[in-house]
């Protein structure tokens, strides 16, 4: 009797075991990207850029050529790669500390220039790797290591909505916010990631997929509560949807 596999490892990821905490959704987002690269058959035409933060070791997990970037500089590094290797697929994988704080200038200008790259932006409202400090994306009232009494808009300012902000730029072609909190949303997230790489394939320009992601360790709650927190607390501040799609105009 022959057995047909119903689930197997994607060729888009290496066999390395990830270092992510239990309940963290980085691993699932990695898998979605890996599946898309594999399904598009572009694993050997892709150069990924890892950033600094929890996903710093992404270069060990994606089964493609990888370049590790300095903190926040991934879109600049990706620009350098794409401009000299324009036929290759280039993506960055960045968290919210990396992209929305120290690297916000690089993200904005890569989008403004319409760099033909794809940014996978995992937003979990916190600095995970350094031990749960406030990020520019942290919610008002959110308790973190550096906002022990909760984020106060008067003291620490308000959350930055990256997708909405970048969508105002003419250079940005496709921007969508998705979530990793359940299977249905993961499927939507995969479609969005696929769309972004398709945009890049046609030379369409800058694409960014923001994926709402969990950090049970940093948030101080368990894995199930963390998935629930995305739904109850994050999505009201970071609504899901397509914020920019100029692919239709391009046709």
């Amino acid at each position: 009797m022959s057995m047909k596999p119903v689930f197997e490892r994607t060729k888009g990821l290496t066999e390395a075991a990830t270092h992510y905490c239990p309940g963290c959704t980085h691993g699932m987002i990695h898998r979605l990207v890996g599946e898309v690269l594999d399904e598009m058959n572009i694993l050997e035409d892709t150069i990924g850029v890892a950033s600094v933060g929890c996903s710093v070791l992404a270069y060990e997990y994606f089964n493609v050529d990888m370049v590790q970037a300095a903190h926040g500089r991934a879109p600049a590094v990706a620009t350098g790669i794409k401009r000299v290797e324009p036929t290759k697929f280039v993506f960055t994988y960045q968290g919210d500390g990396d992209l929305a704080s120290i690297g916000i200038a690089e993200a904005i200008h890569a989008a403004a220039r319409g760099e033909n790259i794809t940014v996978i932006f995992a937003n979990n409202c916190i600095y995970g790797m350094t031990g749960g400090q406030m990020a520019p994306t942290s919610l008002i009232g959110q308790k973190t290591a550096t906002t022990p009494f909760g984020r106060d808009a008067k003291v620490q300012g308000s959350p930055i909505r990256i997708s909405e902000m970048l969508a105002t730029l003419e250079g940005a072609t496709y921007i969508e916010r998705v979530s990793a909190h359940d299977v249905m949303h993961l499927q939507k997230a995969k479609k969005a990631i696929r769309k972004a790489f398709e945009v890049q394939k046609t030379g369409g320009g800058f694409s960014l997929i923001e994926v709402l992601s969990t950090c049970p360790t940093g948030w101080g709650i368990d894995a199930n509560e963390a998935l629930e927190w995305i739904k109850s607390d994050m999505i009201p501040v970071y609504p899901l949807g397509v914020f920019k799609d100029s692919t239709k105009e391009m046709k």
Binding site: V67, A69, R73, A78, T79, G80, V84, E106, H109
Partner: peptide
């Protein structure tokens, strides 16, 4: 957009 970005673009291009 800055010297910081410029040297990191160099880093990316040099990596290829």
């Amino acid at each position: 957009e800055s010297e910081v970005a410029a040297v990191n673009m160099v880093y990316g291009a040099a990596a290829t």
